[in-house]
């Protein structure tokens, strides 16, 4: 119980990670898969940020008044990772729009079925 209380951010991280991966595997809807991917990536943000935070810690300001600092580096790294995540999600959604234009569906099984018929004609 104590381990859970002191490490609960890790438990949340693992829960999000597993949930995101599960959505990607279990759902056939292409947009839902991307939502799963986004949740999965978000868990990593937490993995980096949580250990960098100290209770009562401030931003690293050089002053006599502050003694406890949070590590700023993970925050900077995750800013970059968030940008990457947004770019990935935006590109993914753009591709889904094109898939819907080309196939008229965003359900994985319908798209695969459409291609099987298409492939035979070739």
């Amino acid at each position: 119980m104590e381990a859970f209380a002191s490490h609960y951010s890790y438990f949340v991280t693992v829960l999000l990670m597993a949930a995101g991966l599960y959505i990607m595997i279990a759902r056939g809807n292409l947009v839902k898969k991307l939502i799963g991917l986004s949740i999965f990536q978000t868990s990593v943000y937490l993995l980096y940020i949580a250990p960098g935070k100290l209770i009562g810690g401030t931003a690293p300001i050089v002053s006599q008044a502050y003694q406890v600092y949070s590590n700023p580096l993970p925050h900077v790294l995750i800013l970059t990772a968030i940008v990457v995540g947004i770019a990935t999600l935006a590109l993914g959604l753009a591709i889904v729009v094109r898939i819907r234009e080309a196939y008229g569906s965003i359900e994985e099984d319908e798209i695969i079925a459409a291609d099987v018929g298409h492939g035979d004609r070739e």
């Binding site: 991966l21 990607m24 292409l30 898969k33 991307l34 991917l37 999965f40 990536q41 990935t88 590109l91 993914g92 591709i95 889904v96 094109r98 898939i99 080309a102 196939y103 798209i111 291609d115």
Partner: peptide
Amino acid sequence: DRRALLASYQYLLLGTI
């Protein structure tokens, strides 16, 4: 080919994982 879109989407999911 329209299958390029699906290939790209699948690569996007797996590559990002």
